[in-house]
């Protein structure tokens, strides 16, 4: 099966500056997060896949074709930029119909697709209002709609929740999940917001200094660790002392005790210590690795 995106030895230099340095990765169906700090090479990678830049070396292929060699390869590709990209005049319906035609759809089908997509993203009622009157959240939806109007196989979303309030972010995250799960469209999401990535992505690729430093399934990267978090309502310090006495040192982190486990039998020691000091247990759970930890380890 051909990958949706494939970078092989992908390099991009701007004079002496190396934006991407011989990067290799593949993107298949699902939602993939492209993570990294500013200057990591995320935007350069997206531009290379969109065919807006030519690689210095290596290849950037979309569904087996190079978009910088043939623009026809963009027919099944959608893109939602981070910056504003909507005209100030005209309605959403008119704009989407036009963008569908620019993607190659005949006029009648373009009009039907525009109406359908606007209904799916929840703007059916407002489709004839002027875009200039739309709120930030509605504009983000129209930006997503124009990326979907020609029914692409893959959509590249650049910081899709940028500038949105928490409620708007949540709605956009739901819309991204629906786009993949209900519409069957694969997504590559560029973001620096861990919450967005954890809530929407199946897989991530972490870029740093123009190189891939980590990639894999989100579930695998955020798997449970051997560390246990213990939270009690009272007698925290006595419990820590009791655990220490039982040969299970616990580090105090705020209201929690953090214990590095080496064997399942150690859970019995925790139970005994709790009984011994009479502390009321609020929470006992294994710690999950956070995506922010990946960034910390990359920075280190």
């Amino acid at each position: 099966m051909t990958s949706l995106l494939r970078a092989e030895g992908l390099t991009k230099r701007y004079g002496q500056v190396i934006a991407l340095n011989s990067v290799d990765f593949e993107v298949n169906e699902g939602v993939t997060g492209l993570l990294g700090p500013n200057g990591a090479g995320k935007s350069t990678a997206i531009k290379l896949f969109l065919g807006l830049l030519t690689p210095t070396a290596g290849t950037a292929e979309v569904m087996g074709r190079s978009t910088y060699r043939t623009v026809e390869a963009r027919t099944r590709l959608g893109y939602m930029p981070e910056h504003n990209c909507l005209p100030r005049t005209g309605s959403a319906s008119e704009f989407l119909t036009h963008m569908a035609q620019v993607s190659g759809l005949p006029p009648v089908q373009a009009r039907t697709r525009a109406a359908d997509v606007l209904r799916h993203i929840g703007l059916a009622e407002e489709r004839y209002r002027s875009l200039g009157e739309y709120s930030t959240g509605m504009k983000q939806r129209v930006k997503l709609a124009q990326a979907l109007v020609h029914d692409p196989v893959l959509v590249l979303l650049d910081e899709p929740t940028a500038g949105m309030d928490p409620a708007g972010r949540e709605e956009m995250q739901d819309l991204i999940n629906r786009t993949n799960r209900e519409f069957g469209i694969s997504i590559v999401l560029s973001s620096h917001l861990m919450g967005d990535v954890e809530r929407t992505c199946d897989r991530i690729i972490v870029l740093e200094g123009g190189e891939v430093v980590e990639q894999g399934e989100v579930a695998q990267l955020t798997r449970e660790t051997e560390t246990v978090i213990l939270e009690v309502d009272d007698r925290r310090d006595e419990l820590a002392a009791a655990l220490d006495e039982a040969g299970l040192p616990a580090a105090v982190q705020g209201a929690e005790l953090v214990i590095e486990m080496t064997a399942d039998e150690q859970y019995d020691l925790i139970r005994d210590a709790l009984v011994k000091v009479g502390a009321r247990l609020r929470r006992l759970s294994p710690r999950r690795r956070q995506l922010t930890d990946i960034f910390r380890s990359v920075d280190a």
Binding site: L50, G51, L52, V71, E72, R74, T75, L77, Y79, P81, H83, N84, C85, L86, P87, R88, M99, V102, S103, G104, Q146
Partner: peptide, 13 residues
Amino acid sequence: DGVLSLYLVRPIT
């Protein structure tokens, strides 16, 4: 308005 960035990622040069 940035609409050009949408045109140039579609099948045109």
